[in-house]
Design a protein around this nucleic acid. Sequence first.
DNA 1: GGATATTCCGAGTGGAATAGTAGGGATTAT
DNA 2: ATAATCCCTACTATTCCACTCGGAATATCC
Lengths: 139, 139
Amino acid sequence: MRLSTKGRYGVTAMIHLATYFNKGPVSLKDIAQELDYSEAYMEQLFAALKKERLVASQRGAKGGYSLAKDPSDITVGEIIKALEGPIEFSSCVGGTENFKCKKSTHCVTKEVWEQVNDSINNVIDHITLGDLLKKYDTN
Amino acid sequence: MRLSTKGRYGVTAMIHLATYFNKGPVSLKDIAQELDYSEAYMEQLFAALKKERLVASQRGAKGGYSLAKDPSDITVGEIIKALEGPIEFSSCVGGTENFKCKKSTHCVTKEVWEQVNDSINNVIDHITLGDLLKKYDTN
DNA sequence: GGATATTCCGAGTGGAATAGTAGGGATTAT
DNA sequence: ATAATCCCTACTATTCCACTCGGAATATCC
């Protein structure tokens, strides 16, 4: 039960990008080198981040990626969900799965999973890159 | 990003067992049939639950499993952790991994993961089988 | 004491997901 | 033109998940 590397890499890379906010685009090559990630793999992550309009891209020489918004307007939750899809600690939530609830045991557990999901979302949706930058600067 | 079936099956099965508390052991066969899970797979789960002393076993004919404690003394968190190991939304928590933190970016993210882990644990460690049984009964 | 019901144990397996690679095409600054 | 960069699709190796399988040990019942 853990986040995949996408979420971790993504958040870390976005913090890195945030430190260059309003200083022009940063190339994937630079990001990958700085954080010691695979550049080709990062391409995939940034494609997803761009799709959700969290980053903007500049093609060609001297191009790269930059934050699409102010760091304080981007939450960790948005980044994670862009890369990994919605947070679901367990299923039988949201009604997508056709579960047998004949004994209602399942429905009792459903409440548990919902509480967990809510608490996770409550944390990650309220931490912005701006918050993290502050801590970063004071280190 | 979700719990595996072990956690789900385990919690559901334990609620089922709780409804038979103090009524003698229930065989895996019965549990598996009732909940429509694979019996052989459940064996593995119950081995782990027994190891953590959440259930007690009775071998031989008329044997089976029973809760090792009062339902109100068993939390959902204990069950999940017995089956899936500790909750780690992301790593770089607990210091087991030797991460490069030269830019301190990683350490900023570490706080995020810790907050998420804490919030998950806070939910699942405070819901007992007893709590769930009450809801189950009033349905 | 033999048939039967059960837990216990270790190993194996097929499929899905993860974590990348690889190769080329499109765009832009210089 | 050239070099740097993003863009896109497909491929691959490894790991993890959700089981299955075969048998041994133990207890009950007749």
